[in-house]
Simulated scan of single mutants.
Amino acid sequence: MSKIRRSERLIDMTFYLLERPNTLISLSNFVERYDSAKSSISEDIGIIRRTFMMRGIGMLETLPGAGGGVLYTPGISKDESQKFLNDIKNEIAQIDRILPGGYLYLSDLLTNPEILKTIGRMIATQYADSSIDVVMTVATKGIPIAQSVANYLNVPFVIVRRDSKITEGSTISVNYASESSDRIQKMELSKRSLKAGSNVLVVDDFMKGGGTIIGMKSLIEEFDANYIGATVFVENSTTSNNVSENSITSMFKVNEIDPNKKSVSIDEGNFIENTNFNYFE
Rank of each mutant, 00 (worst) to 15 (best):
T275W: 01
D12E: 15
S170C: 04
V234M: 00
E221N: 11
T137M: 05
L106C: 10
T62Q: 15
I57V: 11
S247Q: 09
K195P: 11
A177P: 07
S263K: 12
A37N: 15
L201D: 03
L71Q: 02
Y34V: 05
I145V: 12
R161F: 00
S148T: 05
K165E: 11
V174L: 12
P144I: 00
I11D: 11
V70C: 11
S178G: 14
A37E: 15
S237E: 15
L18D: 09
R183M: 14
F84V: 06
T238A: 09
K38W: 09
R50H: 12
N260L: 11
E256R: 14
P64S: 06
I92K: 03
L63C: 04
L99Y: 06
E235G: 04
L17T: 06
E281L: 11
I159C: 08
I248Y: 02
K117F: 09
I228Q: 10
I132Y: 02
E19D: 14
T111M: 12
S36C: 13
V155A: 01
K141Y: 04
A37Q: 15
A66G: 11
K195S: 14
E32A: 15
R5V: 10
K38N: 14
F206A: 01
Y127I: 10
G215K: 08
M187L: 12
I159N: 03
V232T: 10
S170H: 05
Y176Q: 06
T238G: 00
K208E: 10
R55A: 08
N175W: 07
N246S: 05
R49Y: 02
K78N: 02
G58W: 01
F15C: 14
M53E: 13
D224V: 00
K186Y: 03
I184G: 05
N151M: 13
R161C: 02
K217V: 03
S148F: 02
T118F: 08
D35F: 11
I47D: 12
S7I: 14
V158S: 12
A139P: 05
I184V: 15
